[in-house]
Design a protein around this nucleic acid. Sequence first.
RNA 1: GCGCCAGUAGCUCAGCCGGAUAGAGCAUCGGCCUUCUAAGCCGACGGUCGAGGGUUCGAAUCCUUCCUGGCGUGCCA
Length: 554
Amino acid sequence: MKQMLHTLITDGLQACFAQGSLSSGEVPEILLEVPNNPEHGDFATNVAMTMARAEKKAPRQIAQALVDAMTQGENPCESVEIAGPGFINFRLKPVSWFALLDEVYSRGIEYGQSDIGNGTSVQVEFVSANPTGPLHIGHGRGAAVGDAVASLLGKAGFDVQREYYINDAGNQVTMMGTSIWARVRELRGEQVEFPEDGYRGDYIRDVAADLLKEQGDKLAGLSDEEAVLLCGDYGIQVLLEIIRRDLESFGVEFDRWYSERSLYERDMVAKELAELKKRDLTFEEEGALWLRTTDYDDDKDRVLLRSDGSPTYFASDVAYHMEKFDRGFNRVIDVWGADHHGYIPRMKAMLAGLGHPPEDLEVLMIQMVNLLRDGQPVTMGKRSGEFVTLRDVVEEVGRDACRYFFLMRRADSQLDFDLELAKQQSNDNPVYYAQYAHARVCSVNRNAAEAGIRVPTSDEVDLSVLTHDNELALAKLISRYPGVIEGAALGYEPHRVVFYLHELASRFHSDYNRCRVLGEAKEVAQARLYLMNAVRLVLHNALTLLGISAPEKM
RNA sequence: GCGCCAGUAGCUCAGCCGGAUAGAGCAUCGGCCUUCUAAGCCGACGGUCGAGGGUUCGAAUCCUUCCUGGCGUGCCA
């Protein structure tokens, strides 16, 4: 619809230039927006105002010339008015709006899909939690947002891959091994002092018990050092499986699970370090190898190899991210918890140093989730072992509600998640509002079918019988959906879809209470069914996109 | 100290690539179930957009200073 008006305006301006009513001869960037106030029409543009300087004429005068030109021929507008300082307000004919419903039906579950991404290949890496413990609620938010962003990009015509980076190398694996080994020895009846920085969660005991049962004999013959290694590997494997399962039941699937350890096995880290050295971006100090990230706007230089020769997490991240681009991704998106934000400058610096445009890496920061119980903060931390897992929350409040909750606000603002509140309110949680709208349409469909009324095809339906304001409003809202998806995708902002969903559901519920299907004349009943099912399709598409189910009954 | 994110209705938040009267949900108050699902609808109440200064015809939106909260500022991840 916007596109149509855009063309109308451009053609109008050309006509003005041709007939001399306007002289600058240059078509400016045309901005069309939906006014807040419905009295100002369906769309408004400020072109006349932005052209004032070039034309050396009053905005309203320019607007008048343009309006005259635009309204000469056939056009989809009911009225085109000049208002205020020089806005041009367009009000479209209802028919123009209802005609757009055809597209919803012809495209079906594809409605909302666009090709603005033009097949650009994008990788979204998210969650990537250390496999040293179950996922907690913060990971859940990252999972919901990352998954939704990936889906949005897919809908916008990008070629998307979802990836989980497994931190199966480094200190935390050793610590994991040490912790499990300590529990194993406890289980054997030994007096053990638990390592100070060890993982204290109960799940470590479970892992230790399983390991003892499965490989107790083998373990008995090992030195402490060997045992820690075995425990570490075993633990990582078990926890990774738990994470996989938790994500699966949260409805998140990855195209690829990428092992950090595999980078070392293929000497990728050494290769990139050599490249950095070759480019003279590193230096040695106090026995460590540093990357001079300050050359590229970082606060301080960063260590790649510690003085004991072991690589930092940053070192493997260099290799990992360069490898991403080597795999052919045009754009790489990392979804990180906000507590890692200090890491961004060094990653960008590293890319710049290696000659890669830093803009190709986009880091989405997911702000903290403040977990509350009855208004009181719940302290979390793997070290203390006391945390609420994503699994617990999903089981308590349900996957749909959980996802909706995580997505309903901008990712870069903090989120209060009160467990008791979420449980108590699960019955009037906003997610049900949207799902309920979907279920209601399905219910009407069932009743209508029983009464022998079917949803008509675009050819059969007579939309001129739809005369209520809210019916027109619904049609307008439906037509906005593709634009919402585009905007949300380009801005990496799934919450926009949530707000749209709420608005659409709200319009629908209102309409449902006013415009009945059953008991009306057949043409009216059919037209309303037609409109209603267009709503259903959009609700379905939007909910599915966010990883939320669209139930037919509630 | 420095850096990042935030500060909008009693609470939780949208709106922020400048536009016409700042919007939702919850809470509060008042209505609507003998007709398609009341997990719903209709209405009311509620605002110095943290504060000051600047840019502009026009600022919640851009710039700047300050205040408040969170996070970061490791040879941890």
